[in-house]
Design a protein around this nucleic acid. Structure first.
Length: 824
RNA sequence: GCCGGGGUGGCGGAACUGGUCUACGCGGCGGCCUCAAAAGCCGCUGGGCCGCAAGGCCCUUGUGGGUUCGAGUCCCACCCCCGGCACCA
C-alpha cells in the first residue's frame, strides 16, 4: 500500500521536462481559438509571498483548464520592476536599485517556477529594462503631441516620507495618507506633468461590452464622480467689470439663493474685498491656508466663513446677495464658487443658521405648511417663491430654469467630474525619465523619437531630497537642445510606475520588439485580453489607468478596441492564521516555500483553492493544508493500487449495478467540475473530486478492473490536472498514458449518465419532512403522489385528516397539505 | 451620510431558476492496525428534550414581520460586520 508520494522529486522532474519541451509556449498563429489569460504581474519585492501564490496558482489552474478545453492559451508573466521599494532598499543597504531589483527577480523566477505554472517565459517583460521603458516615453510623446500630456503649476499631494508627489488616486483614506507608506500627505504647489484622463471621463463610465465585477465598476464610477448641472454667471454689484461663475446641480433652487460663497483662494476675493472687511478676510484666508486638508475636509467641523463686503446679483431674480468666503467651498471643484441655497442644501443651511441669513423655501415638500424648516429639504417638490416658475414640479423647474439661463446667455448646462487629470511626475530616481528638454530659447522641447530611450544613468546619487536625484546628475541634466543645439536641461522627474503597468499586456505580444511598443500582427490574434485576474485594491489605480491607456492607444490607431480586458476577476486576500492581514510586525506571515519543500506545490495549490471561494480569500490554516495532502495521497493510492487491475474486464452480472453507478458518478463529477472550473469555483470543484474519491474508495472492491473503473480513474486524473499539475502528470505516466496529461482534451460528459438513476424522494406533510424514500428517477407525478399517500409515516402525520392538496415536484419531493393552515 | 459586498455548526465553507439546510475539509470523539506512536483505514459529530435502547419529538441559516403548500434563497423594517467614497455644490 502506497500511502504517500514523493512530491519533491516528482515536481522537480516534471518542471524540468515541461520547460525543456517548451510545453507552455503559446504560438502566435494557431488554428485553435485563442484565450489570453493574464494575471497581474508581481513587483519584485524579494520573496514570493503566499499572497502571490493565492493570486497566481488558481489563475494558472484556470488557464490550464482552458487549454485542456481546446484553446491556445497565452499565459505570460513579467515583473513590475520600477518603484520606490527598490530605491528605499538601495538607500538602506547601499546597493544600486538596479542590482537589488535584478537579484530579486532572479530569486523570484526560481520561486515562481516551483509553483509549476504554465507561464510562457519566452514572453517575460521586465519594466526597468530600457527596451521596455523606451515605449513609456514613446507613448508619452504621442500624448504630448495630442495635448493629452501637459505641464501645469498646481497644488499637488506630496508625501513627505517618500519625498515625491502623488496622483490623487494614490492618496487614500479619511486621513489622506500615502498609499505606499501611510504617511499623511501635504499640499505643495509644483510644476508637474499630467495626463489628461479627464478627456475620457465619460467613456470610462461606460462598461458596456466588458464583464467586470460590479464592485470595481462602482468604485470607478464613484471615483469619476460625474454630476450634471448648470454653470451660471453672477455679476457683482457695484463692480461693473466683475462677475464669477457658480456650478450647481440644482438650478431649480436658483430663486432660493440668499448668499454666495467663494473658495478662500478664489482669485476674485482680493479685488472684491471691501476695505473695511480686509483685515478679517485676510485673517480667514491665512487660517484656511494653514489648515491641513484633513482638518479642512472634516465634516464634523462647523462651517464658518467671512463676509467680504461685496454683493452678487442673482441673474434670475435680480436680487442682491452677500458674498462670503468659506473653506467648505473648494477651489478644485466646479468653479470654486457656489450659490448659497440654505433651504435645499445641508451645508448652506448650517452656514445660514450660523450667520442668520434668510432661509427661503423654493421647492415645497408635499406636506409643507409654509413654516420654517428644521433642516434643509433635499427632495423634489413643487416650485414656490420662484415666479414665473411657481407651481411646477421641481423636476420640470430644473429644466425650465436651465433653459431660461441658456436663453438669456447667463449660464449653460455643464457636466463636472470629481476625477482629476493623472499627475505622473515623481521626484525619484527609479523610474522612467520623462522625455522632455527645457531650452531657454525654444521652451519645452520633446525628445525626438530617434533619441529614445532617455536612459536612466546608472551612476546617479539616488538619495531622496524632494528633488529628483537626476537633477543633481550633471551629465544627465545638461543637454543640447534638439531644436537649436543650444544649452538646455532635461526634465529630471520620472514617471509614475503605474504607467508601466498600463500597457504591459501589449508588450507581452513581442517583448523584444525594437521598433514599436508591440507587434500588431500577433496582436490581431491575441487581443484583447480575455481574462484578467488580480486584486481589487487597484480598482481606481491600475484598473482605471489601463482602460484610459487603451483608449489612447486606440486613438493612436494601434488597436481597434477601447477596452483592454474583457473579463476581470478579483481574488480575495489570504490572511494569517490569526485571521489578520499578514505582516512582518505581526509575525503571522506564511512562507509558501516552507510548505512547498515539505508537502509539494500541488498540495499548496490544492489547499489554496479549496480554502473557500477564490474571491473571498480568508485565513490560512496550517492544519487545513493536511486535508489537501491527504486528498492527493488518496488520489495517488486509488490511481495506482487497484486490486485485480486487469484493465478491460467487462462488468459482470454480479456487479452490473455497481458499474452503472460508477459510470454515473464519473459523469456527474465531470459535469460538476467542468461547470465549477469555468466559473473559478475551485473550492467546490475540489470538493466534488473529494466526494468522487471517497466514492471510489467504497466502490473499489466491487468494480476495480472493469472498464468503468479505468474510465473513472483516468477521468479523475484529467479533472485534477489543472489544480495539481505535477502529481497528475506522474500518475498519467505511471498508468501508461501518453505524455502529457496537460495536452489531453478535457473529458466530456454524457448528460444521461450524469443524471441519477435513483433519487431520494422527500415526503412532506404540511411542509415538514416526514420521510425519505429511494425511487426511480423517472417516477411519474401520479406514482410519486400515490406512493406518498400510501406511506406509513405520511399517513401517521396526516392523522386521519384528508389531503386538501398534494404538491408534487417530480424527482424531488411530495408535500401533502392537510389544510390545517388556510389552504383549501 | 452615500455606494458596494456580507451575516449558515467549534472553524473554513456547501446549498440549482424557492423544494432533503450544514456537502467537502479542518477540529473533536470512538474503534481497527501497532509493543507504542505517527501515518493510514472504519464509524460518529448542529442544538435541546424524552428513552436502558431501538427510536421519537421539538427547534435551528443576524433580529422581527410578510408572501408561499414550502423561504438560507423572494418582499418590508431593523441590527451588526467588511470594503470604498465623502463639505463634490
Amino acid at each position: 500500500m502506497v500511502d504517500r508520494y514523493d512530491a519533491t522529486s516528482i515536481e522537480a522532474k516534471w518542471q524540468a521536462r515541461w520547460e525543456s519541451d517548451r510545453l507552455h509556449h503559446a504560438p502566435d498563429f494557431d488554428p485553435r481559438p485563442k484565450w489570453y489569460f493574464l494575471t497581474m504581474y508581481p513587483y519584485p519585492s524579494g520573496d514570493l509571498h503566499i499572497g502571490h501564490w493565492y493570486a497566481m496558482a488558481p489563475s494558472d489552474s484556470g488557464a490550464r483548464f482552458r487549454r485542456m478545453q481546446g484553446y491556445n492559451v497565452m499565459f505570460p508573466i513579467g515583473f513590475d520592476a520600477f518603484g520606490l521599494p527598490a530605491e528605499n532598499a538601495a538607500i538602506q543597504n547601499r546597493i544600486h536599485p538596479h542590482t537589488w531589483t535584478m537579484e530579486n527577480i532572479a530569486r523570484m523566477r526560481g520561486q515562481l517556477r516551483s509553483m509549476g505554472a504554465m507561464w510562457d517565459w519566452d514572453r517575460e517583460v521586465v519594466t526597468c529594462d530600457p527596451a521596455y521603458y523606451k515605449w513609456n516615453q514613446w507613448f508619452f510623446l504621442r500624448m504630448y503631441e495630442r495635448g493629452l500630456a501637459y505641464r501645469a503649476l498646481s497644488p499637488v499631494d506630496w508625501c513627505p516620507k517618500d519625498n515625491t508627489s502623488l496622483a490623487r488616486e494614490q492618496v487614500v483614506g479619511d486621513d489622506r495618507v500615502c498609499e505606499r507608506c501611510g504617511t499623511p500627505v501635504v499640499k505643495k504647489n509644483l510644476e508637474q506633468w499630467f495626463l489628461r484622463i479627464t478627456a475620457y471621463a465619460d467613456e470610462l463610465l461606460d462598461f458596456s461590452g466588458i464583464e467586470w465585477p460590479e464592485r470595481v465598476r462602482t468604485l470607478q464610477e464613484n471615483w469619476i464622480g460625474r454630476s450634471d448641472g448648470v454653470e451660471f454667471e453672477l455679476p457683482v454689484a457695484d463692480h461693473p467689470e466683475a462677475s464669477f461663475r457658480v456650478f450647481t446641480t440644482r438650478p431649480d433652487t436658483a430663486y432660493g439663493m440668499t448668499f454666495a460663497v467663494l473658495a478662500p483662494e478664489h482669485p476674485l476675493v482680493d479685488p472684491l474685498t471691501a476695505p473695511a472687511r480686509r483685515a478679517e478676510v485676510d485673517a480667514y484666508k491665512f487660517k484656511a491656508a494653514r489648515e491641513s486638508d484633513i482638518e479642512r475636509l472634516s465634516t464634523e467641523k462647523e462651517r464658518d466663513g467671512v463676509f467680504i463686503g461685496a454683493y452678487a446679483v442673482n441673474p434670475m431674480s435680480g436680487e442682491r446677495v452677500p458674498i462670503f468666503i468659506a473653506d467648505y467651498v473648494l477651489l478644485t471643484y466646479g468653479t470654486g464658487a457656489i450659490q448659497g441655497v440654505p433651504a435645499h442644501d445641508a451645508r448652506d443651511f448650517g452656514f445660514a443658521k450660523k450667520y442668520r441669513l434668510p432661509i427661503r423655501v423654493v421647492v415645497a415638500p408635499s406636506n409643507w405648511d409654509g413654516g420654517a424648516l428644521s433642516q434643509a429639504y433635499l427632495g423634489e417638490g413643487t416650485m414656490v417663491n420662484s415666479s414665473p416658475f411657481d407651481g411646477l414640479p421641481s423636476r420640470e423647474g430644473w429644466t425650465r430654469i436651465a433653459d431660461e439661463m441658456e436663453r438669456r446667455g447667463v449660464g449653460r448646462r455643464k457636466v463636472n467630474y470629481r476625477l482629476h487629470d493623472w499627475l505622473i511626475s515623481r521626484q525619484r530616481y527609479w523610474g522612467t525619465p520623462i522625455p522632455i528638454i527645457y531650452c531657454r530659447d525654444c521652451g519645452t522641447v520633446p525628445v525626438p523619437d530617434a533619441d529614445l530611450p532617455v536612459e536612466l544613468p546608472m551612476d546617479a546619487e539616488f538619495l531622496p531630497t524632494g528633488e529628483s536625484p537626476l537633477r543633481r546628475h550633471e551629465g544627465f541634466r545638461r543637454v543640447r537642445c534638439p531644436n537649436c543645439g543650444g544649452d538646455a536641461e532635461r526634465e529630471t522627474d520620472t514617471m509614475d510606475t503605474f504607467i508601466d503597468s498600463s500597457w504591459y499586456q501589449y508588450r507581452y505580444l513581442s517583448p523584444q520588439d525594437p521598433d514599436r511598443p508591440f507587434d500588431p500582427r500577433p496582436g490581431a490574434y491575441w487581443l484583447p485580453v480575455d481574462q484578467y485576474t488580480g486584486g481589487v485594491e487597484h480598482a481606481v489605480l491600475h484598473l482605471m489607468y489601463t482602460r484610459f491607456w487603451t483608449k489612447v492607444t486606440r486613438d493612436l490607431g494601434l488597436v481597434p478596441f477601447g477596452e483592454p480586458m474583457l473579463r476581470l476577476f478579483n481574488q480575495g486576500v489570504i490572511l494569517g492564521e490569526d485571521g489578520e492581514k499578514m505582516s512582518k510586525s505581526r509575525g503571522n506571515v506564511v512562507n509558501p516555500d516552507d510548505y512547498v519543500s515539505g508537502m509539494g506545490a500541488d498540495t499548496v495549490r490544492t489547499y489554496l483553492m479549496f480554502i473557500g471561494p477564490w474571491e473571498g480569500g480568508g485565513p490560512w490554516n496550517s492544519r487545513g493544508i493536511e486535508g489537501a495532502q491527504r486528498f492527493l495521497n488518496r488520489v495517488w493510492s486509488i490511481a495506482l493500487d487497484s486490486p485485480g487491475s486487469e484493465i478491460g474486464e467487462k462488468g459482470t452480472a454480479s456487479n452490473g449495478h455497481e458499474v452503472r453507478e460508477l459510470r454515473h458518478w464519473t459523469h456527474r463529477t465531470i459535469k460538476k467540475v467542468t461547470d465549477d472550473m469555468a466559473g473559478f469555483h475551485f473550492n467546490t470543484a475540489i470538493s466534488a473530486m473529494m466526494e468522487f474519491v471517497n466514492y471510489l474508495h467504497r466502490a473499489r472492491d466491487a468494480t476495480a478492473g472493469t472498464e468503468a473503473w479505468h474510465e473513472a480513474v483516468r477521468t479523475l486524473v484529467l479533472l485534477l490536472a489543472p489544480i495539481a499539475p505535477h502529481v497528475t502528470e506522474e500518475l498519467w505516466q505511471r498508468r501508461g498514458e501518453s505524455y502529457s496529461v496537460h495536452q489531453q482534451r478535457w473529458p466530456a460528459y454524457d448528460e444521461g449518465l450524469a443524471r441519477a438513476e435513483t433519487i431520494t424522494l422527500v415526503l412532506q406533510v404540511d411542509g415538514k419532512v416526514r420521510d425519505r424514500i429511494q425511487v426511480s428517477a423517472d417516477l411519474s407525478e401520479t406514482e410519486s403522489r400515490d406512493l406518498a399517500l400510501r406511506n406509513e409515516k405520511v399517513r401517521k402525520f396526516m392523522n386521519g385528516r384528508p389531503a386538501a392538496d398534494v404538491v408534487v415536484v417530480p424527482g424531488r419531493l411530495v408535500n401533502v397539505v392537510t389544510g390545517r393552515r388556510g389552504a383549501g
